[in-house]
Amino acid sequence: MYFDSLHAALDMGGHGFYVWTAYSVTIVMIALVVIAPVLRRRRFLRQLAGQLKRAQVATAENTRGER
């Protein structure tokens, strides 16, 4: 490890604030870019499954109604 202590790693000779902020923003954006589409897909699948169930209930009802 280049830095001898955790404190030195955080401080980085005075530049620590800039370096760590830059890295944390990058990590947040990477997480956003990867997780957002997965969430969107999951939410959409759940929504579609709901539609499917409603459709099945509707068809079941009117078949019962016709009999």
Binding site: Y2, A9, M12, G16, V19, A22
Partner: peptide, 21 residues
Amino acid sequence: GLLFTPSENVQGNSYRIIYIH
């Protein structure tokens, strides 16, 4: 890039941002 590479003589440690920029 953050912890194991040596710091640069001119800019000190702020050059580590190069690894994401």
